[in-house]
Design a protein around this nucleic acid. Structure first.
Lengths: 185, 185
DNA sequence: GAATTCATGTAACTTGTTACATGATTTA
DNA sequence: TAAATCATGTAACAAGTTACATGAATTC
């Protein structure tokens, strides 16, 4: 259900097209939620049928027409219930990288390579992704009312991404050392 | 595909029933992969059709019959290709808790409550889950050949779970402090 | 002139979730 | 005597992925 609430939440900020929403997901929520455009369009459709969102067509020339979605009163009610009542617990995890490591014992060299790749990947993400995301957050903050206050919370989600990425890179480092040590014995 | 590879991997250790596999997933892989029994049975079926696993029926009395699954040569080939060739990258994240925090600005008190619950949850998991999982790992290590060496890698996956849980609890703590500070201004 | 952006989706498929059904045996 | 364990699944549904299609406008 979090996809639906993500969409509703973004629509509380302002009207958006499916395309806009897809981009905002990529730019700013990507850290904790991933959604394809096909999924977003499907969800918008479903939510419109349920009366949580409404859409109006904008005819443009020289550009394809667009459909602007806005949140309805019913949608706002649903959204604020989620905020106030529902307390999300643990997600069911799905981490293919760890699955790979779990079965690493018979292939230590390949596992080392996988761990090195993992470390590089997270270090690279830490270096390259953070400032663009911060930039996006600032940009969006300027576009909506109370953006300054809202962006504090957006940044919190980024911070957890950063903390987890650091923890992961450090963990990979420790694992690499452990396997290399074992190799020398 | 990681579910399939998890199942294949466990079958390289020994023959198992769908029920066994479900329990091992719960006991030991739960940290990075979650799978319902219904999913595991479906996957076993599919893999048998593809020739990656084979099954034989064991008639028991006083207990329901069971089907023991084992990995075939084709399955071993597929599995080792995954180990040696495929390098899993980032997973697409789906974290409802962070979605909740992202939209927290207009409801700081409820968000505080959510963050406190998050922190408690992770601290509790750190306290209560780790030693049972370590226990399970030791138990399984005694049941299979080379269990000692294999369990080093199993423990690595647990360690990342621990590191991430710590990072998350600390992050929640910082967020709580930040919101409480903001409240006093 | 090629690639990217804007803007919409549909279709087919795979994965994951929830709920249910069966029925004996062991443990609390 | 109630609950949990062993062992099998099926059915229906929800959510996520991949691939494709369209076509003008803008940017490199």
């Amino acid at each position: 259900m979090s996809l639906a609430f993500g969409i509703l939440g973004l629509l509380t900020y302002k009207e958006n097209t499916g395309y806009d929403l897809t981009k905002i997901f990529e730019d700013s929520l990507n850290n904790f939620w991933h959604a394809q455009s096909s999924q977003i369009y499907r969800e918008l459709n479903r939510m419109e049928k349920e009366g949580l969102v409404a859409s109006r067509s904008i005819i443009q020339d020289g550009r394809p027409n667009k459909r602007l979605y806005s949140i309805t009163d019913a949608g706002r009610k649903e959204f604020s219930e989620w905020l106030c009542v529902i307390k999300p617990g643990f997600e069911n995890p799905h981490d293919g990288m760890l699955m790979r490591i779990f079965f690493g014992a018979d292939n230590p060299e390949e596992t080392l390579a996988a761990l090195r790749q993992c470390r590089e990947q997270y270090l690279k993400a830490l270096e390259e992704n953070c400032s663009p995301i911060r930039g996006n957050i600032e940009k969006y903050a300027r576009m909506i009312p109370d953006g300054r206050e809202k962006s504090r919370y957006w940044l919190m989600t980024l911070e957890l991404g950063v903390a987890r990425a650091r923890a992961t890179a450090e963990w990979a480092e420790r694992c690499i050392a452990q396997i290399e040590e074992g190799r020398e014995r």
